[in-house]
């Protein structure tokens, strides 16, 4: 594909999704500490549309995980609220499935059993054969049909992450939440998984909220990149719109001059305007 395809007028802009799905309203989180209350996040307001892929980037300690935890329901906001389809989020639920940083697969089960347990827990009333089909179908989606009967302890980190993604997608969440999903993987596995995630997202059209440390990953995957300022009291510094057409290919994006503009913008934000203290010292 040539770069010109990217600018084809009939191609729909990537960020075009459905209506608003997830709304952050004046969201704030304060943690009590022995040294007094510590504000992690302050005044976060933005909206994620149905079917949108949003990445969140920021230095460690800026409250990215806290932000996601308030979407998944593991943490409660101190002020403001997060609304899903207009309803405030109160507790964890399968409509906001999480792909955990450490995979969080049950090691005494096989890959298949892990995915099946998810389906079976969320939709216990489905007929047995349908639940099995859903589990196998999603394992196939991440290319794990052959390893379905392997114990989690017998498979590699990349395969574990695939199982975790299959488990998350199999329950058809409205929002898929990923907390630095590819951070622990080697470069090649990481690129493979990014591409798989993207192709699955293209077919399932679920909404994705993903934390990352990697600007290139965000530029390849996301419709929008939320860049957080440093804590305490971190907020949204800037939101980049990444409107490369979809489906994307790495090569095409790399040839697009906008890629470098966006990349420089993000780098400038992270390493000049909001350089981390520790990074400066280093």
């Amino acid at each position: 594909m040539s770069a010109s395809v990217l600018h084809h007028p009939s191609a729909s802009p990537a960020s075009a999704g459905g209506g608003p799905l997830l709304r952050f309203e004046q969201l704030g989180k304060v943690y009590p500490t022995p040294a007094g209350p510590y504000p992690v996040l302050e005044n976060i307001s933005f909206t994620v549309n149905q079917g949108e892929f949003v990445c969140v980037i920021g230095h460690s300690g800026c409250g990215k995980s806290t932000l996601l935890n308030m979407v998944s329901g593991f943490a409660k906001p101190t002020s403001g609220q997060v609304l899903l389809n207009g309803r405030p989020i109160e507790k964890p639920g399968p409509d906001r499935m999480v792909v955990f940083q450490g995979y969080a697969l049950l090691p005494w089960m096989t890959a298949y059993e892990n995915v099946y347990l998810g389906v079976d827990s969320v939709k216990p009333k489905l007929p047995e054969h349908e639940k099995r089909e859903i589990a196998m179908e999603h394992l196939e989606m991440v290319g794990l049909t052959a390893a379905a009967e392997k114990k989690i302890t017998q498979i590699s980190g990349g395969m574990k992450q695939r199982v975790a993604i299959a488990r998350a997608l199999a329950i058809r969440p409205e929002v898929l939440i990923l907390d630095e999903p590819f951070g622990a993987l080697d470069a090649i596995t990481k690129e493979e998984l990014q591409e798989e995630l993207l192709s699955i997202w293209n077919t399932q059209k679920c909404t994705v909220l993903m934390i990352t440390h990697d600007i290139d990953e965000a530029l390849f995957l996301a419709d929008r990149l939320v860049m957080m300022t440093n804590g305490p009291a971190a907020g949204i510094g800037e939101i980049l719109s990444i409107d490369f057409i979809r489906p994307r290919s790495r090569e095409d994006i790399m040839e697009d001059p906008r890629y470098y503009e966006l990349r420089n913008q993000a780098l400038d934000f992270l390493y000049n305007r909001f350089a981390h203290d520790e990074d400066e010292k280093a």
């Binding site: 329901g73 639920g93 399968p94 499935m97 955990f100 995979y103 969080a104 827990s121």
Partner: peptide, 18 residues
């Protein structure tokens, strides 16, 4: 029991029996 496993159970809203 790792917090991760408990969190999985919470997200999936597993019944206490399960």
């Amino acid at each position: 029991i790792p917090q991760d496993y408990r969190n999985v159970a919470l997200v999936l809203q597993m019944s206490s029996g399960r």
